[in-house]
Simulated assay, not measured.
Amino acid sequence: MTCFRVLLVLCLCWLPLRSIACDTALVLTIDVSNSVDVAEYRLQVDGLADALRDPEIVDALVQGEVALSVVQWSGVDRQQLSIPWTRVRTSLDAEYVAQQARLMERAFVLSDTAPAEAIRFSLRLFDQVPDCVRKVIDVSGDGTPNAGAAVRDARNAAERAGVTINGIAIESMGLAITNFYRGAVITRNGFVITARTHRDYPRAIRTKILREISKVFG
């Protein structure tokens, strides 16, 4: 009887730990609005795929059993979940998402830029991963809104829901996009990284993902 009680206590202690195994749920959003040409789109998806094959990133993803999804966005009614939630429990899981990213077909062309709708679309996805401790949305883009609702309102809704928004601002010159992201897109606990043109995006996405998931481990 004593042994049975010990086993029961051990099982009860173990179950809650398994229920919060996912440290972070991360939605990676990619801007495919009219300002992004074919070559720039390819730089984004290849940069994402390469980042998800980086050994340091893969190790951190696996340690945290991070859940990943990828969204393409542009205008008001132009958001698509291109890669559904995938739990990265092994390096093979990370490789699967990397392959899916590299093969991902562009969802929209000749469309406006509506980041508020992209944020609200991404927020709804977290209903599918309620066990993840941290919830993060990445917003990458190369322009300010020319359609859609107020971005600050969407950002505030994310803060109320306990969701962090980080960003990659893709600049052609100056810091206009970066300053917009700082003022209207990222949450108070978020950050923005500047990419100097789309060619700098692969470096920026690697830096950003590593910073996001490494925070879990101190």
Rank of each mutant, 00 (worst) to 15 (best):
T2N: 07
C3R: 13
R5N: 12
V6A: 13
L7R: 15
L8K: 15
L8Q: 15
V9L: 15
C13S: 13
C13Y: 07
W14N: 09
W14T: 13
L15E: 10
P16F: 09
R18K: 12
R18L: 13
A21K: 11
A21N: 02
A21R: 12
C22W: 05
T24C: 10
V27M: 04
T29A: 15
T29V: 08
I30R: 01
N34K: 15
S35W: 08
V36E: 05
E40Y: 04
Y41A: 02
L43P: 00
Q44L: 01
D46F: 01
G47K: 05
G47I: 05
D50M: 09
L52N: 09
D54F: 05
I57T: 15
A60I: 06
L61S: 14
V62R: 13
Q63D: 14
G64W: 08
E65T: 12
V66Q: 03
A67T: 07
S69T: 12
V70I: 10
V71F: 07
Q72H: 14
W73F: 13
S74A: 15
G75S: 08
G75R: 01
G75A: 05
D77S: 09
R78G: 01
S82W: 00
S82M: 07
P84W: 04
W85H: 08
W85C: 01
T86D: 01
R87I: 11
R89N: 11
T90A: 09
S91C: 02
S91F: 07
L92K: 06
E95H: 11
E95T: 13
Y96L: 12
Q100I: 02
A101F: 03
E105D: 14
F108L: 08
V109Q: 10
D112L: 09
T113I: 05
P115A: 06
E117F: 04
A118G: 10
F126Q: 07
D127N: 11
D127T: 11
Q128A: 14
C132S: 14
R134K: 14
K135I: 04
K135L: 02
V136S: 01
I137P: 02
S140D: 01
S140G: 00
T144C: 03
N146A: 05
A147N: 08
A147C: 02
A149T: 11
A150C: 09
A154V: 06
A154K: 06
R155M: 10
A158N: 01
I165D: 04
G167P: 04
E171Q: 11
S172D: 13
M173N: 12
M173L: 11
G174P: 08
A176D: 15
A176R: 10
I177Y: 07
N179H: 11
R182S: 03
G183Q: 14
G183N: 13
I186K: 02
N189T: 02
G190I: 01
G190F: 00
V192F: 02
I193F: 05
I193L: 14
I193C: 00
A195F: 03
A195N: 07
R196L: 13
A204Q: 04
I205G: 00
I209N: 06
I213K: 06
I213V: 15
S214L: 11
V216Y: 09
